[in-house]
Nucleic acid binder design. Sequence first.
DNA 1: TGCCAGGGGTTCA
DNA 2: TGAACCCCTGGC
Length: 293
Amino acid sequence: MKYKIDEIENGVIVRDVKHFNPVQVAESGQVFRWNALEDDSVNIVSHGKLINIKREKEDIVIRGTNKSEFENIWYDYFDLGRDYVEIRNILSGDIELDKAMEYGEGLRMVNQDPFETTITFIISANNQIPRIKKSVELIAKTYGEAIGEYDGETVYSFPSPEVLSKADVAEIREITRVGFRDQRIVDTSKMIANGEMILDELYNLNREEARNELIKFPGVGEKVADCILLFAYKFADSFPVDVWVQRIMETLYLEEPIPKKHIGDFGRKQFGELAGIAQQFLFYYGRENKIGK
DNA sequence: TGCCAGGGGTTCA
DNA sequence: TGAACCCCTGGC
């Protein structure tokens, strides 16, 4: 453990954490169950738990947890094992990316649960972030378990593959507003629940192999697969290309439009093994500043 | 007020 | 390769 941890009542303080602004991460588009509050803290639902996290000067304060849980769950979830000073050094020297990294000073990757990431990014297809977040909340409320309460509202965990695989397609559509993605959610959950696909085994594959497996899920194409690889499986060189990244790359790096499927390889050539992390900085910077739009 | 385009893509013809 | 797809919101 490379950080000094102090225990407080119902929480921990992680001392001297560089480059971690929870509000920026909440806005980064990689997470859908991080909700920024008025005091600049962020409520997070993950791993069947509700926690609250806030930057206080050099430190990160996490409430709703304890030291052993922090070490077992949140340390890895918040990617605290990776040195972002070093990551940013490696990526530095590119004028546009330097601007994006300065803008996203507190951005970092979050290591999320593969199943939840798969389902939420299936929902993201041809969709918009507020509606994605709403659908994810409704799925948790309908099929998850009550795990706590905030501001008078019950908070629910994300359901298991077993539960979602048995959900009624018409009911999912009716209640959770996912539209045509209803069948994809149930069918993907079935493939996992019945053992046809074992998500944990993808950790043992290389990026191309894991990608080819993920694409077997209905509703998972190349872009969604790349998001799952980057946000759940720690493939830092996975470079998801959505309409925003395409516009940003064309505006900042390319003379002319190139096919979407070639932009990922271009990104890896340009930024190397950490291309996916570079993509996060560019996505955040580009979307907040409407680059290319 | 009401209509219409378009959105973190994927699928199917 | 291109149209269709649920639903919702912002712009006119």
